[in-house]
Design a protein around this nucleic acid. Structure first.
Lengths: 222, 222
DNA sequence: GTCAACATTCTTGTATACAAGAAATCGAAC
DNA sequence: GTTCGATTTCTTGTATACAAGAATGTTGAC
């Protein structure tokens, strides 16, 4: 029961950030959070520090914590790194996968296909997470797996926006197909290239989105 | 002056870990550390949590913190990831470097050469850090730079052991030469390959070292 | 003599009190 | 009317007190 208070707080605040209840730039008052969750400031501070370590919030000395608001170009940089890490995971997976890995990867892939067929964006979203997790798993590099999961998680809110884009699900599924084939074939370079492209396109789409928003803002008078 | 207490504690403990004063597996008693540094337990706890976030120590609920003792294969995994991140940084650097980047990279390279000539392992060690930092810098991807610096730092104690190995400095310098040429030439693939090899060899050497120690331990009766 | 259970002690986890720095507001002077 | 400064208030940073769980040692029974 102990120490889970911090964990719980961390998750709650994190959810608040992902769900938009706590928008970027929002100030996080320790006292207020403490009374809101019915605990003292101590565990709140610890939770905030953990979130700060992940990069989700920013703690400015003596000036409190705010929800981090990474500049768009920073998010793009993160997608660049993510692409490379995924490519690496794919390359290793293609060389090291076991029979169990094959099974898991194919199962996740079929889940994605099902969700795409019914055009269920939410279901696709979760199936997609499992798909990528299966690749990390098959890389048989525990550290790489951790890094990928952490970054994947951190980019979640930016990826989520993108499934709305027209045909994104179909395209994504086609890309998955190429990835699966390469991994099961043991073609490390092809797997890496396919994954690199699969992720890079998300960074590009994110950039487009930002550009659109910027254009919309400056073009249309408020 | 405030908040630096935590920073200071973090650095002190970190130094203790790197220097071996706090060996892996050592239990870190909050009360003891607090009285040792003349502060209360609160900032000590915060420092420990930060170190835990980096992965340098491990906090077991209700059972205190111990200096992390990553399994050798985990360290090897970390070198694998480091190799890929450095390769990525090198590739980007070769495409994006500015005149200032060239200058900085060459200066760091020459520093390394000087240290190697005088066979000054410590000096080489620091020059080498600057050399790699210059590459991260030239990648013009701030997030990648942060990730590289963090991992580089975390692998520091394992890298440090290796300069003692015969001819390691000369070989390292030759590898640096290849890397510099590739980056300044704008040959992204060659830069990536050179850096990947440069780091991978360290992982291999680490493995050899572990194997040697294991063999020595089981071979020679205590 | 050994094993198990209970009690004691030690350490962590949480709450609260206190101190110090930052921000905001109010007032005065230009 | 605006700007600069001081005071007050609010929030964070640190210390300490208290509670709860884990580890260890002792005692008793088999």
């Amino acid at each position: 029961m102990s120490e889970n208070i911090v964990q719980k707080l961390r998750d709650q605040i994190e959810n608040g950030i992902f769900s938009g209840t706590l928008p970027a730039g929002k100030r996080l008052d320790e006292t207020q959070l403490a009374s809101q969750f019915g605990v003292s400031r101590t565990p709140v501070r610890e939770a905030l520090m953990q979130l700060s370590a992940i990069g989700l919030i920013e703690i400015r000395p003596r000036r409190g914590a705010i929800v981090a608001e990474p500049a768009p170009h920073r998010v793009y940089e993160m997608f660049e790194v993510m692409a490379e890490l995924e490519a690496m995971a794919g390359a290793h997976a293609s060389r090291r996968h076991t029979q169990a890995d094959r099974t898991a990867l194919l199962a996740a892939h079929e889940d994605c296909a099902r969700s795409a067929q019914t055009a269920d964006a939410d279901a696709y979203y979760y199936a997609n997470e499992s798909f990528h997790a299966a690749i990390y798993d098959a890389s048989h590099n525990g550290f790489l797996q951790e890094q990928c999961l952490a970054l994947h998680r951190r980019l979640r809110p930016y990826r989520r926006l993108q499934l709305r884009v027209r045909n994104r699900m179909e395209n994504s599924l086609a890309e998955h197909d190429r990835i699966v084939k390469a991994i099961l074939d043991g073609s490390a370079d092809e797997a890496a290239a396919a994954l690199r492209a699969h992720i890079a396109v998300q960074g590009d789409r994110f950039s487009d989105l930002i550009a659109q928003i910027a254009a919309g803002r400056s073009g249309v008078p408020a």
